[in-house]
């Protein structure tokens, strides 16, 4: 457990550094300015992983703990929430997404040979599968949001 915690901390340091650099190059936020925000995000993620590790029931994925923890800490009623919101606001979402997809690309490379073997029918059906879930959800959401008069 302790060894794992050390590993996690080091990994969070590495990826946080990347986010800060990307945030600086792509979105002109100075690294020092973004530092409290990324520290807050990394701490929340780290805590979520620990909660998942400590709780014996494993039916809930660790990302659920992370999401809920971040959600609670940023609710207006919670003391200090406005600081967390202000800090994390300096960390651009897109700057977080870029290293995710860079790592994902490297990991995807392994599947490429399998991908190349897929027939053209699979590729067409695959695109409709993705389009279906995306557009399907958007249409249902649109209908409900309009019925409620939110949009």
């Amino acid at each position: 457990m302790l060894k794992n915690i050390q590993e996690w901390v080091l990994l969070f340091v590495i990826v946080s550094f990347m986010v800060i650099i990307g945030n600086w190059i792509g979105y002109d936020v100075m690294p020092l300015e973004a530092l409290p925000g990324i520290l807050a995000l990394a701490s929340i993620s780290f805590l979520g992983l620990i909660i998942h590790r400590v709780i014996p029931y494993k039916g809930i994925p660790s990302i659920a703990y992370i999401g809920i923890l971040a959600f609670i800490l940023s609710m207006p009623a919670v003391p200090g929430s406005e600081k967390i919101v202000e800090w994390t606001g300096k960390v651009n979402l897109l700057a977080i997404a870029t290293p995710i997809l860079a790592y994902a690309g490297i990991s995807i490379g392994r599947s490429w040979t399998d991908f190349a073997k897929l027939g053209w029918k699979t590729v067409i059906v695959g695109m409709f599968v993705l389009l279906g879930t995306f557009l399907g959800s958007a249409i249902v959401a649109e209908i409900i949001l309009r019925m409620q008069g939110i949009i």
């Binding site: 979520g48 971040a70 940023s74 609710m75 919101v85 994390t88 979402l93 977080i96």
Partner: peptide, 13 residues
């Protein structure tokens, strides 16, 4: 996980 945390802190407010 950082993205999920970012999702969360946007959702609170």
């Amino acid at each position: 996980t950082l993205l999920i945390a970012k999702f969360g802190v946007q959702a609170g407010p």
